[in-house]
Write a protein that binds this DNA or RNA. Structure first.
Lengths: 215, 215
DNA sequence: TAGATTGTTAATCGATTAACAATC
DNA sequence: TAGATTGTTAATCGATTAACAATC
């Protein structure tokens, strides 16, 4: 097999967006060259780690000088696939769904939510931040016709698997799941979970720990 | 030092909530005993990993039998500090803030958002899901008086550090940051970030990768 | 009893960090 | 040139997985 390239480490992938943010801020100030040390200092990371992470994107720097800021921004964006926008469907037009639709920052991440779907007929037809809410029954056909590859799930936990199945039946290739539920999808379909409970667990466990120690 | 206990591994901590979800579902069906194999199967994990994770909570099972579901639920909840509710303040009453306030599920995670704050005077005075929006200037004094230890940041990126400083000045001990920005806080203050861009980076990088391979 | 499962120790794997030569 | 920084290899650290004895 020719595809014997090493898998991209997830922790590295998760750090790239913060580099991008920093670099864009830097570009705004007119700086056109940056070193790993500089990035690492701002983000409180190890400079070797930053260098290895940047290496993933295929960029090369110059000893003594560093990296060209604009080149680096382009390299990261291309590596993440953020350089050209992807259209996405969202299932579950509740308050979280509305918040995601309303967040304009996703454009920077190459994501564009073009339609929302809801099982609740009372929500169908409404406009959420200029995005129309459609009945879930229309999803599979529309996804196929519009060549949508990304689906976002913002339904309650007990409807999450159903929403996932719906997206899969429409030929979606990647699911961004915000529902507090474990969902399964066929081999080949990417599932990325945003489990707020996991994040909160880290926070509360640490807090409980420090408060236990202090007493 | 007596506090030479091994640090709790973050990945393990992040898995605990999913166990809890599964166990509660199980308890609902009337089952009162469960094995690691059973949990691992449902969540597509390694059973040894599940056992090690549960070990963290201090629970002991019985060979051949497994763990008592109700005991396990209590053990995880106590370990995470989810058994008694914490009051929290939220800064930034935009659509994401509103979504978090409106999400009743946080009660299960021991979190109760009692007040929202915003710098925008036009938002002040409004009610968001029965929670009053107050001016940010009132935050430090109120946080101190009400013994609030947890602060949630849902402001735009450029106001995030300011919001963090405000919370810190009110004596907050832990910050749950939803703003797409790197924030710094004094030693001892816990900062847990929900960086949607990191999560999306994993999704889009994988998607770009598979699409690259297919062509 | 036999066998499933826990508890625990050892082996493996992968990510982070350290070391250092190459270079502009 | 001298020295800062990249690129790369090696060492360390921590998490996952495997192995196996203890036990109900």
């Amino acid at each position: 097999m020719a595809t014997d390239i090493k898998a991209i480490p997830v922790p590295a992938l998760k750090r790239l967006p913060s580099y991008l943010r920093f670099l864009k801020k830097l570009a705004g100030t007119g700086r056109d060259v940056v070193s790993c040390t500089h990035i690492a200092q701002d983000l409180r990371l190890d400079s070797t780690q930053v260098r290895k992470d940047l290496e993933l994107t295929g960029i090369t720097g110059r000893p003594r000088i560093g990296y060209i800021v604009s080149e680096l921004i382009t390299a990261i964006e291309e590596f993440l696939g953020w350089n050209n926008c992807r259209d996405a469907f969202l299932v579950g037009a509740g308050s979280l769904g509305a918040a995601l639709i309303g967040y304009t920052g996703f454009r920077d991440y190459g994501l564009n939510i073009v339609a929302a779907f809801d099982a609740d007929t009372r929500k169908v037809g409404a406009l959420v931040h200029d995005v129309e809410v459609l009945p879930v029954s229309k999803l599979p056909e529309l996804a196929e016709r519009m060549h949508i590859h990304v689906g976002i799930i913002t339904v309650p936990a007990d409807a999450a698997q159903e929403a996932a199945d719906l997206l899969v039946s429409g030929g979606i290739l990647a699911i961004w799941n915000f529902a507090p539920a474990h969902i399964t999808a066929p081999e080949g379909v990417i599932v990325e979970n945003v489990h707020l409970s996991s994040s909160l667990a880290v926070l509360t466990a640490r807090l409980t720990e420090t408060q236990r120690v202090e007493k």
